[in-house]
Every structure is written in C-alpha cells, then in structure tokens.
Design a binder for these strands. Structure first.
Lengths: 302, 302
DNA sequence: CTGAAAGCGCTTACAG
DNA sequence: CTGAAAGCGCTTACAG
C-alpha cells in the first residue's frame, strides 16, 4: 500500500489538507524589492528557518505605501498562510493605517500569525532591527577615533526607522561631545543618487567642513563617497564616510565602507521563529545586537 | 449579500479552490541563494510578471546538487503550484538526473508546468541565459580594443553554463585572433575567493603575461581585481579584468568592472510568461540578447 | 438560466 | 485501536 504510493510518486495534497486545517504551510513575506540586499538577507534568514519545518516562503512585493500593502494583504489572506512577515517601513495616512490594522486583524481572527521583521512600529510580535543602538555604537566608535563633527544624510520620507537612527546618532553625539550639523543637509531619496546629491550639495555649500558624513543606508553612503571623490577629495583622508546596514561587500569598494551590521539574517530567522510560536497575551519584542564595522572610509583621525 | 461579505472581510479560500481545480495560484522558483544578485534579479522579474495574474511566487533554496533539487521538488509537488521555475545549473550522477526527470514528469502529469530560467540543458520550455553569445560579444569587443591574449578563470564544477561561456570565448577568440591561455589556470570555486586565488596563482606563475583576465562571474572577477592590486599592478593599465552577469553595481568598484549584461530580469519575466502558456508539442526556447558592458577595468590598449 | 447536489483529497470526531 | 462517515470551502456538471 505504502509502497504502491511510493511507486506511483504519490504526494499528499497540501491544498486539501489546508481546507480542513484552515492554514497553508507557508510564510508570506512582504518585501519591497528583493534585489535590495537588505531584503535579500532577511528573506534568506527566513527561508533557512522555515525549511526544517517544511514551510515554504512566498515573497510579495509592496511599495512602502500602506494602501498598497493593504491590497497585498487582502490577496494574501485568500492563501491562508500560516504567518505573514512584514518588513520595511511604511508611510500613509491615518485612515490607511486603520485599514491596514483592520486587514491584519481579520487575518489574525482567521488564525494567522503576524510578525514584523523591521522597525518596532506595529502592535505585533517583532524581530526588531537595532537601528538606534547601531547608530549609537557607530557614533561612539567614531568619536573614540577622534571624529568631532558630523553631517547626516537623511531620506526625504519620514519613517520610524529613520527616526530611530537619528535618535541614536544624536544621543551618542551628545554623550561624546560630537557636533552634528543637521540643518545643512537636504533630505534626499534613499538611494545612491540621493546620497550623491546630498553630499555634493553639502561639500559645495561653503559650510564649515565636518569630520564625517553619516548616511542612513549603505547605498546612500556609496553615493556620498563618490560625491567626495568628484569634489576632488579623498574619502577617509579628507572626510570620513559611514553607512548603515553593512550590506555592501566591503572588499569591493575602495576604501572599504564603515557601516553597521544589523544581523539581518538572524532577524529573518527569528521572525519565522516568532511566527511559529503560539500567540501570547503580551507582545514579543526581540531586539538584536548591532555592531559597528569600522573600515578605511573612517580611519582614525590624526 | 456581497456587501455583507465585504463588511465581514470575506476572502475566498484559495486552498479549497485548489482542491477542486487541482492547482494553486503560485509559481515555485528553485533558486540556490536569494542573496546572490543574479538570482535576485531573476526572482524580481518573475514576481513582476506574476503579480498582474494574481500569482504568488514562492522561493525554495536548493544547492546545485541534483539530489537536493529532487528532494525540494518532491516537497513542492505537494503544494500543487501552477508552475515550477528551475534556475541555475545542476550537477550530479546520471541516476540522479533520471530521478530528477522522473519527479518532474510526475509533476507534469499532475498538470504542472515546468520552465527553466537559465541554461538550455533540460527538456522543458526555457528562457535561456545568453552565455555563449555574451561571451562572444565580450571577447569581440575586447579584441576590437586591442586585446590580443587572455586567460580564463573558470570554476571547479563543470556545468552547461560554464561550457557555454567557454565555447563563446573560444569561438570569438579564434575569429578575432586572440590567444587564449587555458592551460595555465587552475579551476577554482565560483566565488570571490576563487577568483582571487586563480588570478594570484596566475600572476605569480612566471608565465607570459596576458592582456586580460576573463572570469565566468562578476564575483570571481572582483576577486581577480583584488589579486591584481595585491600583486602590485594596476587593473586596466597593467592588465584588463572582465566579469560576466553585470550584477555588480559598477559605480561601487574602482575601476568599473567590464561585464556582460544578460538581461536576467527579462528572463525571470519570460519564465513566468512561458509557465502561463499552454504546454505545446514542441519545446519553447527563448534566447535573450546579451550586451557587453565596457568599463574602466578594460580600457582600450595602447 | 438558476439552484441544489456531488465531488475534490484531505482531517477529525465518532461509532464499533 | 480501527475504520467508516462527516465536514472543510470551494467548483462543476446536472437536474429543474
């Protein structure tokens, strides 16, 4: 009997199973763009953790706009995934936010589990990206190496993630007596180009030179590095540049880019882990360790 | 009635639907490692194409070993995905290959569609990566810029993809009277480190210097670039280096890496496209255009 | 054209 | 402990 099944290549029908159990053995991840190494690391961690439990991971693209996310979640609900993992940050009106929470609540009522792998801004179990701590550690490390003044390269969209980073930077700056020039920087798109234009704008502004440029993502920092070069200066020597996320293959850029390792892969794994745990009365919040990774783009001063 | 459904947040149950229709509205992609930009581009293309049709994309990790792939496909069959998209290359014994084909055949008998996004080495509809043409174009372009001799950095695993690349290189080399030093290179892992060790081995071998080093992936080429630097030479000036895949953000490496754009994203899209077409008596093969992208790592000679 | 019934392949509660 | 029946939420073929 069993061997007949084996011979015929029988495989149990997950869908049929799911119609009785009420859920499908999959984890649905909502990710903005899988080509972004930040997201790829999260997803990779999730896949790793899901596989031993026989769970599939599905990827759905969402923009950072809540309304779009709501639409995706509605679609996803049909699928009855065991869990949804929300990543990234989102922006949108208050009413959009209500729609999002409603959609998620309906999903939970159906027995779905919701987990956030990212910023701690939604009322669900979350594996939190340690932006604030990471920013603090970075600034502390730079201060220890003699950096006394910094300018920040920040995105034009406001989000919890960016605020956390800024808060961390400012806290550590105050603590270590580092001057932060905030006013000077325009807010730019979270991209390489954004970083480039912000940095070159700053360098040509005639403002007092700062010891280092801090960008909220590695991509922006790379743009800033190239702006520094195009301004005829040497990164590291004339001005330090640091990123965030530690997602750039350090050996591929010269000089190596100082950044902050956010242990994204572990966050992805933990998100799945949380998803597989029974829901609890109190919300679970796992915060990871961040680690400043110092490279040649910020050599010790003097 | 309908509005009641709407108010209660009703969503049709895909699993129940699937138990009657026999398949699930998902495309299952088998990918080695989603963190590899090569794979991320394929997957991104697939997601783009799948979404308008209301299809989810699931990602399963596989090593490049057939037996592992067979295991994953068996699992996946339970899911009854509408289609499976195979990527990458695979190696394994003849009997493993038989097992793979059997598993895939069972899946097809169940009404599943199989599509390859990668090398043309399996008897299914395939969106083919234009490695051979790409290699030809690269060598032709370099020959046109005065490169007369090249050494190849090749992987230690044999695969259709590598053979295609080699074939393309050799064809174009013959045509344009470029000397290819094959014997000298050891076969190395397909990684940055592999590229480094192959290149440094070559440079310290005392062999006659060649005009350029050609690597079968960008990652290997990056390793080669750093080996060149560590050998006290200047990439581009003393020796050219070229990669393949055009997956490296060119602005982030100095000098920019010459490579070949394989239109991976379109290949991902097309794979889904093929998956959604009715199976046909004759196998469909879509071959894409490759494009040599010349950058500073291979300046014109003289 | 409409509506009730049968069936998809499972799981689970229940009778024997 | 085993095995037949009911039920999961759909689709589809069929009777009215």
């Amino acid at each position: 009997m069993l061997e007949t099944a084996e011979r015929l290549g029988y495989r149990p029908n997950t869908s049929a199973r799911a119609t009785t159990t009420g859920s499908t053995p999959t984890i649905a991840m909502l990710v903005s763009d899988i080509r972004d190494p930040y997201n790829a690391q999260l997803v990779h961690g999730a896949i790793q953790q899901a596989r031993p439990s026989g769970l599939m991971v599905t990827i759905s693209g969402t923009e950072h706009v809540i309304d779009d996310e709501v639409r995706v979640i509605r679609m996803l609900r049909s699928q009855r995934p065991r869990a949804m993992v929300l990543t990234g940050t989102r922006s949108g009106s208050a009413s959009s936010r209500v729609a999002l929470l409603r959609e998620l609540e309906l999903y939970e009522q159906d027995g779905g589990r919701i987990v956030v792998a990212g910023d701690d801004e939604l009322p669900f179990d979350t594996a939190a990206v340690p932006r604030r701590e990471g920013a603090r550690k970075l600034v502390a490390a730079l201060a220890g190496m003699g950096y006394r003044s910094m300018a920040l390269i920040t995105p034009d969209v406001d989000s919890t993630g960016v605020r956390e980073w800024e808060t961390g930077v400012l806290e550590a700056a105050r603590e270590h007596e580092v001057r932060v020039d905030r006013a000077s920087m325009v807010r730019v798109p979270t991209s390489r180009e954004g970083g480039y234009s912000a940095a070159s704008g700053y360098l040509s502004s005639g403002r007092e030179r700062v010891d280092a440029l801090l960008a909220v993502t590695d991509a922006m920092a790379l743009g800033a590095m190239s702006a520094v070069r195009h301004a005829g200066m040497v990164v590291g020597q004339d001005i330090g540049v640091a990123g965030f996320d530690d997602v750039v293959d350090a050996d591929d850029v010269t000089p190596g880019l100082t950044s902050v390792d956010l242990s994204l892969e572990s966050i992805g794994r933990t998100a799945v882990d949380l998803a597989l745990q029974e829901p609890d009365a109190h919300r679970r919040l796992v915060v990871f360790e961040a680690r400043a990774v110092l490279r040649d783009s910020t050599p010790a001063r003097r």
